[in-house]
Design a protein around this nucleic acid. Structure first.
Lengths: 223, 223
DNA sequence: TCCAAAATGATAGTAATACTATTATCTATA
DNA sequence: TATAGATAATAGTATTACTATCATTTTGGA
């Protein structure tokens, strides 16, 4: 059995809900593909419009600008990660096992059971790794935060923090450790591929070493 | 006694060495100010030219584009950090004390003894925190890496890794732990100010708690 | 001190980006 | 089948990210 995900997004993320129409879904799916291929800086609504056979003006009816589209995609990603986390830790009683699962999820090792209609999971992951930070590293982060655009990220972080506290109820920095884990997983994956001297896994094709490192990091902090 | 820093930059970072002329230094110093004020996305050479009373064309004689200027600034920052690290750990024999010093440096606690002619240290730090990732999170990271633009970051990372190995010669992930520490210091500082729910130091005005967290993280990993 | 070279300023221009506006056409459904 | 809602087609603006040219100023060395 596989599960269909339906993710409810913050309405401030869009002008018109992209999930409600074909064009909207095309914007998301081809948007993900294109940002993945050419990078967020070179990505434009013009290019996307040409690709999906529509016009710039039509895309602007769904998203205020390309940064909002990025934040939509990244936020979707965090929500989906939280879904997966809940699913994979559902019947697990040992907090230690839950933490191992979290790390596998963050390093893309855990296979997931969800069907996504129109979203390419691998490309979404790639974007989360190389463009994710750009959604909040802006001068308007405080405004975006006020309308709760980053709630899914915080929710995921908080859920992980709670599991850390299950493992060690006296731990003083569960949220910081959670955000450190999330960011580090992505950064180290990026460094492994592009700046391997910043890691100890240069040349590795899989994430085994990275996973060992993250496990060591988290469990030694919590113990 | 205070020390004058003279940093030799990779020649691929500029078209004409900005340190060699007044205009060049103005580009750097006002560039730092402006990026700090309005953020990298809204920053343009046009605005910078107006601010320092020159023309866009003149700025293009120093830097290929604004991204190269950012990378110049960020690279300068990493080089300067390595200088400071060498200086502050110079006569320290205990690796533990060296690590404490590194963390203080990364969280901006350590006062430094260097005079910078035309660079505002606080603004440089602010840029390193909120724009630093953007220097390597691009589609051209591999090309930039080939001409060694990120060498200063790697050098700093390697130096920290060596100190970790002094502390614990058997530690398997010194470089990853070093890059994790560097990135985490900056991210947690950013989160503390803008997305405090991702940390455990919301509302704190100083970095004491963050420093305790980083010390705990690093020493428990290394022990 | 004066000359040549280098640096800068002034000006202009182009293609692309990041939008907004208007009107026409299509399409789903009540 | 009328109509509201969505999309397409088209046009237009201000700004960005450059490049090019030539005049003027600065400077460093014979």
């Amino acid at each position: 059995m596989e599960l269909q995900v339906q993710i409810k997004m913050n309405t401030h993320l869009f002008v018109r809900d992209p999930e409600s129409t074909e064009l909207g879904k095309n914007i998301i799916s081809h948007g993900i593909e294109m940002i993945c291929e050419i990078g967020f800086e070179d990505f434009t609504f013009k290019k996307l419009a040409t690709r999906i056979g529509t016009t710039e003006a039509s895309i602007y009816r769904y998203f205020e600008n390309k940064h909002r589209l990025l934040t939509y995609i990244i936020t979707w990603f965090w929500t989906w990660m939280e879904y997966q986390l809940i699913f994979h830790t559902n019947n697990v009683t040992e907090p230690q096992q839950k933490i191992v699962t979290i790390i596998n999820l963050l390093t893309l090792k855990e296979k997931d059971q969800f069907i996504l209609e129109y979203i390419d999971k691998d490309k979404l992951n790639a974007i989360a790794i190389s463009e994710g930070n750009k959604s909040y590293l802006t001068k308007h982060v405080n405004d975006d935060n006020k309308v709760m655009l980053f709630k899914p990220y915080k929710d995921l972080c908080h859920r992980i923090a709670q599991i850390f506290l299950e493992f060690n109820p006296g731990y003083a920095y569960p949220h910081s450790l959670a955000s450190t884990l999330i960011e580090t997983a992505h950064h180290q994956l990026y460094f492994k591929d592009h700046l391997p001297r910043l890691t100890d896994f240069g040349g590795a094709t899989d994430s085994k070493q990275l996973i060992k490192y993250l496990n060591h990091l988290v469990f030694s902090a919590l113990s």
